[in-house]
Each structure stands twice: as C-alpha cells, then as structure tokens.
C-alpha cells in the first residue's frame, strides 16, 4: 500500500459512493493531504541537503590547501582563490581594470562549476561585429517568461 493509502484507511475502507462522504472523511483528507505534502517535501529537503554536502565534499578534495595568515579573518569556503600569476598575454589597448573585471567574472563562473584553482592565460578582443550589450539585449528579449 502506498503511504497515502495507509494513512487514509478510514476512507479506503468505506464504500465508494460519493453520497457516503462524511465530515469525518473531510478531516481525514485534510490531515492526510497536509501530512503527505510536508512528509514528501521534508524527504526532498533531506535528500537535497545530503546531495549538497556530498558535492561540496568532493569539490573540497580537489582544492590544494593554501596557508592562511592568522591575522586574516576566516573566509567562507565559496570565496574564489585569486589567480596567482598575472595574465600572460593581454592584447594592447585593454585596460588593467578590464582585466581585473574579466578575471573576477571568470572566477565567479569557475566557482559555480566547482573549480577553485585556475590560471588565465590570455585576454584578447573577439572579432564579432555585434556589441556585447546588443547581444545581451537580444538574449534578454528572447528569453521566455
């Protein structure tokens, strides 16, 4: 028997004519419904939390541990580690600020993938004709919802 059937034996045992539905049946339905919804979602919470712990555990194993100076505050785990050596090849005309912004953005993306140490090798302009803002605008407008 499924969970629901077990908890609603009162209803299941009764005859199946809707005219026989009583107020008692109503309250059993409400109780069963709320209970099952909470139970199922609680199970999902446990599973998702477990899944999250496992994933973070496997990610932590790949990271090389770096010695942290005592004076520095304890930094929360998700914070990305900065790319230690400078970017090797930067195309002429790209400002240092832009390099910093790009590095930060890439660090953020890498963090989502669970990669915490990487090195930027080069930054150069792309040859596309359409501006990035234009592309962003188009993808925003064509996104469903």
């Amino acid at each position: 028997m499924t969970v629901v059937e077990r908890w609603s034996t009162a209803i299941m045992a009764a005859s199946k004519n809707i005219a026989d539905w009583t107020w008692g049946d109503t309250w059993v339905l409400v109780a069963t419904g709320m209970f099952v919804v909470f139970l199922v979602l609680l199970m999902l919470i446990l599973l998702v939390t477990l899944m999250g712990r496992i994933m973070q555990g496997t990610n932590r194993k790949d990271t090389k541990s770096k010695p942290v100076p005592d004076a520095v505050q304890k930094v929360p785990a998700p914070l990305a580690q900065p790319a230690a050596p400078a970017v090797q090849r930067v195309e002429d005309g790209i400002e240092e600020e832009t390099v910093a912004v790009i590095s930060a953005a890439i660090a953020c993306m890498m963090e989502e993938k669970g990669v915490s140490s990487f090195r930027l090798k080069s930054i150069s302009r792309s040859k596309k004709s359409r501006s990035v803002w234009g592309m962003a605008g188009i993808s925003e407008n064509t996104r469903p919802f």
Partner: peptide
Amino acid sequence: LRPVSKTEKMIFPVVVTLIISLLIP
C-alpha cells in the same frame, strides 16, 4: 545563496521524480 553546481542541478530532477512518483503515483 551558495552557488549550485551543474551536477547537483542534474541529479535533482531525477531524485525528485523517483521519490515523489514512488510515494504518490
């Protein structure tokens, strides 16, 4: 919110489907 990896986002739908469909067909 903590960043969620792609793997988690792929395991989630499978797990949810299994749990819910087995409990509440």
